[in-house]
């Protein structure tokens, strides 16, 4: 095993651990807000490491191939960065939209010790 393989194992192991943890969190937590905590943060973090691993893989293949084939791996790296940017900007906004829809339709946070939103009208 060389350095490339070890780097990819580490990055992908972190990514799998957090993404699976987030999906388990969907079942462990009691209400929609806490589930959003689990789902949004862990899948975003996991995707960052997954795409970092793909970039490492692209760099690894770049060292092997030459000539015209090199272009396709550079293209893979560039498009992966765009996919990561799309995820980073859309994920928190989507989570915020779901949380607001849930609160405005009257889903109460479970086990809440404080709920300031009840005063708003």
């Amino acid at each position: 095993m060389d350095g490339w393989t070890i780097a990819m194992i580490v990055l992908l192991a972190i990514s799998i651990f957090f993404i699976l943890l987030g999906t388990i969190g969907l079942h462990r937590f009691p209400d929609v807000y806490t589930r959003l905590h689990a789902a949004t943060k862990t899948t975003t973090f996991g995707s960052i490491f997954l795409i970092a691993a793909v970039i490492v893989y692209g760099a690894f293949r770049l060292t092997e191939v030459s000539g015209d084939n090199a272009g396709s791996f550079m293209h893979l790296i560039g498009m992966s960065i765009i996919a990561l940017l799309a995820l980073l900007f859309t994920n928190p906004t989507g989570a915020h939209a779901i949380a607001r829809a849930a609160r405005r339709t009257g889903v109460e946070p479970e086990q809440a010790v404080i709920d300031d939103y009840r005063e708003v009208k």
Binding site: F18, L21, G22, I24, G25, R28, F29, P30, D31, Y33, T34, H37, A38, K41, T42, T44, F45, I48, R103, P109, E110, Q111, A112, V113, I114, D115, D116, Y117
Partner: peptide, 23 residues
């Protein structure tokens, strides 16, 4: 973000939460 994920990991495993909505 890394710290938040470790915190969520601990919470998923132990199940200890104290939620609330604050202004």
């Amino acid at each position: 973000l890394a710290k938040a994920n470790l915190q969520v990991a601990v919470m998923v495993i132990t199940g200890k939460i104290r939620p609330g909505i604050v202004r």
